[in-house]
Amino acid sequence: MSTPAEQVVFGERRRLLNIAYRLLGSLAEAEDAVQEAYTRWYAMSPRQREAVESPGAWLTTVAGRICLDVLGSARVRRERYVGAWVPEPLPDPAEWAGTADPADRVTLDESVDMAFLVVLESMTPAERVAFVLHDVFRYPFDEISRIVGRTPAACRQLASSARRRTRRAQRPPAVEQAALLRDFKEAWQAKDIKALVGLLDPDATMTADGGGLVGAALRPVEGGDRIAQYLVHLADRAPGLTLLERTVNGRPGLVAQHAGVTMTVAAFGLTDGRIARIWAVRNPEKLRPWRTA
């Protein structure tokens, strides 16, 4: 039986996981970062833990520093990554695979939109930490400064610089995006290149992430015509593939399954009523939360 104090400490887990996922774009890395923060907490003596005025603030600071270190090393690791690296997609809570503890589920809102996470990837580690903690989670800059190791004024500048990068892609109502993707799914299933081209922006880009573990285009496919042809080629090569309309990172998306097993999760970015970006995650290590039949 845990004590009330221990329950309070463990109650911070979901908030920490939400922060870490937005900072790292990877659920697996976020879980590791949060676990490491708790490991350091319990490595202290009872007297040391009792001396901590705010365990939540302590855990946030430690988890934030761990994420900052991970972000610093991630750039090197992603240079060795096979093909493009796309943030890990998350399903709607009702679709979460298995019996995951609710504390291990990330809250879905605009700050986990795939397009937004991709923009975060363009930031420096310090910019990302300052921006996410301040603009998304409303932490004051004096607290952020203890994580980043810079003055509050410098952290304010970091967040401001990051904010200028977040010119978000068009975000139509979910019902409008869902209707467009339904047409897209039907055109793909029918192998109708003309219909697909009509739904895609002429300058659309499709990025696939297979991580070297499964087949995927190593470079982005650019242009509506080329993407349409590529999708029809995939359909020809994968008979029996089932396309499902699902929520991906809080927005309408598509999931491809074969024999009930999720093979691909696709998120979309729209511009002027057409599909401008497709992020197709095929790396099985990034599809753990997705339900299988």
Rank of each mutant, 00 (worst) to 15 (best):
V197K: 02
M263D: 03
L199A: 04
Y230W: 13
D32I: 14
I275N: 04
A33I: 06
A276Q: 05
T39A: 09
A51V: 11
R246G: 01
R164G: 10
Y81N: 02
E29A: 15
L133E: 08
E36S: 14
G11F: 06
A63W: 06
T262W: 09
R47D: 10
V214T: 06
L71R: 11
S26T: 12
V197H: 00
A74S: 14
Q177I: 15
L218R: 15
V281Y: 10
Y230K: 04
E88F: 04
D236P: 03
S45M: 11
L108V: 06
A30K: 00
R13T: 09
K185F: 04
V52T: 12
V112H: 05
R80H: 13
Q229K: 11
W85P: 02
T61D: 08
P284F: 04
D69T: 15
Y21C: 12
D32N: 12
E110D: 13
D69I: 11
P46F: 14
E127G: 07
E36Q: 14
A130S: 15
V119Q: 15
I19L: 15
A159M: 07
L117H: 01
T264S: 09
N283Y: 05
P284V: 07
A28W: 00
A100V: 05
G223I: 02
D113Y: 11
A280S: 15
D101Q: 00
A97G: 10
K191C: 07
V112N: 05
A178R: 14
V52Y: 12
A33L: 04
V8M: 11
R277T: 01
D209I: 00
R282V: 02
L120V: 06
V136T: 08
A204N: 03
M123R: 04
D104Q: 13
A33F: 01
S2C: 06
R49Y: 09
R65E: 13
A276Y: 03
Y42M: 11
W85M: 03
T262I: 06
V106H: 10
R75N: 05
K286I: 08
A280I: 08
V118Q: 14
G149D: 07
W41K: 03
V136H: 02
Y21L: 12
R156S: 15
E285M: 13
P152S: 13
Q257M: 11
A169D: 14
Q35W: 02
D104R: 04
D113T: 10
I147T: 12
R165H: 07
V82M: 03
R277N: 05
L181F: 09
E36P: 01
D209H: 08
V132S: 01
L243F: 12
E6F: 00
N249T: 00
F131C: 08
G56S: 02
R65D: 10
G224C: 02
G240L: 11
L27V: 09
L181C: 10
Y139I: 04
R288S: 12
H134D: 08
D32M: 14
T205H: 04
P93V: 04
G11V: 02
